[in-house]
Design a protein around this nucleic acid. Structure first.
Lengths: 344, 344
DNA sequence: ATGAAAGCGCTAACAC
DNA sequence: GTGTTAGCGCTTTCAT
């Protein structure tokens, strides 16, 4: 039936008629042009109200050559782990900020099979800007569109010419160092790490931070196993770590989900957290709160990251100057998975 | 600077010129009309390829009066708990399905402060259909737009005239019964429930399912406490349950997040799961997998629900006949938080 | 400050 | 089967 459900949305022209002005004037009012007398503006506003007028986006963008649409590009593989609470919070931050602006959020799942489809869609004039969120390896396909369209990455892109792209991130190295440092301060001396994927900046940087802190303390930094950031891989990595037979009294996990998995294994083996082994995670997500015991972790401002990403694209689109890089602060959240700090 | 970054996207007209046909023919090819000779179609396709032509959505929808945009409406309060993995998976399902169609996903955060803004946006001709996802109480504001625009709800809407709206859901009553039944079969006799919000259909139905199974077994159904579906509230409810001083050997929790919280309390009190108390959750999300022990739960096909919602709106938009209600199956996932079934 | 007129890039009758 | 002709609803010079 392809029914004509919409009861003929009122047009700008009807508003103009009712207000007794020309379409141009209505357009000016709608677009907040200062060159309109108060009376005219008032009349138009009343007409808009009584008619329940809503500008037609299609017409508007066709005429203005601006879509007011911002794409949120999610690589398909990331979509599969959409359940990652950190990622979900970033999206939430983006959506929340955009809802305060006149921009609209267009979620795009980028199939890895046909990356060109997405690329063309983006540079085909269908969006004014794009946000790329992914824990994944620097998708080179999106590196170049940054020259054609404002693009902001969530997390430092893993590319040679980093300097060319805009991104917002946290200092993963510093965060991991802080976590490791805390483990050391609470008395741990046999440190291990459940590292993240080494083809992702976050994975690489957090390992580097751990390593730097461990070396600085003059300790062994060979207890390294990594996983793909999922609880299951966290558990597997922990098993491999234990299997080495070396003593371990402190583990830094590159994210909370893996920490949750690792703690499960620890408990299976009869090791108490934190009495036998202390554990610190990274992210500060739901997993860390619900864990048993609650996880000491390096919290990232997830929704803040999303918010900031949205702010940056909008600024870029509107021609404002923006810093290429925004670093957001992390925060050590001390909870039950680590020992108390010794009296000082 | 509002730079003219886009290098003049090629228009349909240019394709027509290069292919040596009229714009109509190009349009026909793009829209897969059967009334085009193979040669013409081929020529057009080549032209499209060499030019890298992408149809302009704005122009297309202005002319065709179809936006090919589907709004995913997320009430602001829900956005705050976006970290709910179940919800995230639903969104993922929607996005995944839509990416296979020519429809685009427009995420809309509906501020509860100005519901009219969202309503107007939706019925203002900016989208072809809407999906409303929320654990929340029947948002009456969206009830009526269903008459103006194809709308599909995720979860049965809590409204008087349910029959009037399209929705996809799982049978929460049956799922809860199954869970409770399983608890009974494994020998539990002192059952309690950590119920969900009673202003949401899922909360009400799951409590009803538990109650029905408990009564059928001739047992006491007074051990009821509820929470808001968050881990924290699950923990609080469990504490209140324990505080009553009555024996409890089996708890059904209305979702996995609350079950995670409840298990934490159980462990705090020195009660072993499942030896002392068995626990069953609902959802089958990440929390249930990572829990310690892994949670026996009623799994919902979260991404499937999203997928189906997307299918339904698209069918509705394109005038196909669709069932008003789609019920998806739930599945009992037996894991470590319950006792083994007795030998039969 | 306001109006008139000319499109934006595409689809949709309608003729051929 | 294909081209021609009008717009879709809005913004935007350009006059006035």
């Amino acid at each position: 039936m392809t029914t004509e459900l919409t009861p003929a949305a009122p047009t700008l022209e009807q508003v103009a008629a009712l207000a007794g002005v020309s379409r141009s004037t209505v357009s000016r009012v709608v677009n907040k042009s200062p060159h309109v007398t108060d009376e005219a503006a008032e009349a138009v506003r009343r007409a808009i109200d009584t008619l329940g007028y809503v500008p037609n986006r299609a017409a508007r963008s066709l005429a203005s050559r601006k879509t007011h649409v911002i794409a949120l590009v999610v690589p398909e593989s990331t979509a599969k782990v959409f359940a990652d609470p950190f990622f979900a919070s970033v999206v939430q931050g983006v959506a929340l900020h955009l809802s305060d602006t006149e921009y609209t959020l267009n979620m795009v799942i980028a199939s890895e099979a046909s990356p060109d489809k997405t690329r063309r869609y983006l540079i085909g004039g269908n969006v004014d800007g794009a946000l790329v969120v992914s824990h994944h390896t620097g998708d080179h396909s999106y590196a170049h569109i940054g020259q054609t369209l404002p693009v902001v990455f969530g997390g430092r892109p893993l590319m040679e010419d980093e300097s060319a792209s805009y991104f917002v991130d946290v200092d993963n190295v510093a965060g991991a160092e802080t976590a490791t440092q805390y483990l050391l301060e609470t008395g741990c001396r046999n440190l291990a790490i459940v590292a993240g994927r080494q083809d992702m900046p976050a994975g690489v940087d957090r390992l580097a931070g751990w390593r730097s802190a461990v070396r600085r303390a003059g300790l062994d930094d060979s207890l390294v196993e990594s996983g793909d950031f999922s609880p299951r891989h966290g558990a597997d990595a922990m098993r491999r770590l234990l299997h080495r037979g070396q003593p371990i009294d402190g583990v830094f996990c590159s994210n909370d989900q893996m920490a949750a998995g690792a703690m499960g294994v620890l408990r299976e083996r009869g090791l108490r957290v934190p009495d036998d082994v202390s554990v610190v995670g990274f992210d500060g997500d739901y997993f860390s709160e619900t864990a048993n015991p609650p996880l000491t972790t390096i919290a990232q401002p997830a929704t803040g990251l999303g918010r900031r990403m949205a702010e940056v694209v909008v600024d870029l689109i509107e021609g404002r100057d923006v810093e290429r890089v925004t670093m957001m602060p992390t925060q050590l959240l001390v909870r039950g998975s680590t020992l108390p700090l010794p009296q000082s």
